[in-house]
């Protein structure tokens, strides 16, 4: 009874995913979660125990829909919550997969797509939040779970995307990141949510490297450099970063004097440092001899 109701809610969530507002979907989700609680399937239980596999996958799907819905609503906290709830399901899932084998393979494939989608989103979230350590830990875990098949990982539509983005960001090929975010390269609409954040991120990256790399820049080419729409936006952006505009060129406030000052300041303690070090050696030698 409750199970059928759950399936209904789930299909409703899946089919009309994009049209539902966040409040609607979250209402549906909480209803689904209540049902799960009644069925005692809110948390993953070890396979082979009383819980049947269909319930297991139902619960997982509910969480997946929840994760996707919260991404659409740009609610990273809720998303993270769903992801950590899903983690347990994914860990156990491989056990179920090997245990039941045979007929469930087709189902497992469909499962994997959703799973990769959510995991990919998680990676992307970590990337945009600048949590590189977590990003790489997760990546390592993923590749081990696939038996070290990193190529496979990159070939996957959903997982490969954040991996490539990370590599390009690290390298500095921002134009590729830019291209990946436009032109329908994004694997699915949920990923598009991050594009805005990423655009902002790479723009400030480019700006900070430009400050150091160029003595001056013509406004016209800055537009394409920063992936901005019009020259007006360039001017606005330049103001926000405190750049000087003169004769159609952008001049960056030089950072030179500040560093020189810092250098001069460092000069004094430096000789002191040497004296301190030498005294330290002398003391140590004293104790040894």
């Amino acid at each position: 009874m409750a199970e059928r109701q759950l399936t209904q809610i789930l299909t409703q969530l899946q089919t009309s995913a994009s049209s539902l507002s966040y409040t609607d979907s979250s209402a549906l989700l909480s209803k689904a979660k209540l049902l799960l609680l009644q069925l005692n399937a809110l948390t993953p239980t070890a396979p082979g125990s009383a819980s049947n596999p269909s319930l297991f996958s139902l619960a997982r799907q509910v969480y997946e829909q929840g994760a996707l819905a919260s991404i659409r609503a740009k609610n990273p906290d809720a998303f993270l919550r769903y992801v950590s709830q899903l983690q347990g399901f994914y860990e156990l899932e491989s056990t179920v997969g090997t245990g039941a084998a045979g007929g469930r393979i087709a189902g497992a494939d469909a499962n994997r797509e959703e799973k990769n989608k959510v995991t990919g989103l998680y990676l992307l979230l970590l990337l945009t939040q600048g949590q590189y350590a977590e990003f790489h830990s997760e990546l390592e875990a993923l590749s081990t779970r696939l038996g070290g098949a990193t190529r496979e990982l990159e070939a996957d539509r959903y997982l490969g995307y954040p991996i490539k983005l990370e590599r390009w960001l690290m390298e500095g090929s921002y134009d590729r990141v830019w291209k990946a975010m436009k032109k329908g390269e994004v694997p699915c609409e949920e990923y598009g949510v991050f594009s805005e954040i990423l655009t902002f991120q790479i723009r400030s990256e480019i700006a900070s490297s430009s400050e150091r790399a160029y003595p001056s820049l013509p406004i016209s080419s800055t537009k394409s450099l920063l992936f901005l729409e019009s020259e007006g936006e360039v001017v606005e952006f330049a103001r926000s970063r405190g750049w000087v505009l003169k004769d159609g060129h952008i001049y960056f406030p030089s950072a030179e004097p500040t560093t020189e000052e810092a250098g001069a300041e460092q000069e004094k303690p430096f000789s002191r440092l040497i004296i301190e070090n030498t005294l330290g050696y002398a003391r140590e030698l004293e104790t040894i001899v």
Binding site: E171, G172, Y174, D175, R176, E205, I206, S209, R212, A213
Partner: peptide, 14 residues
Amino acid sequence: SEESAEYIVAKAIR
């Protein structure tokens, strides 16, 4: 591409 090269070099300088 050249654009990539430009971004990469700029990042290296920074």
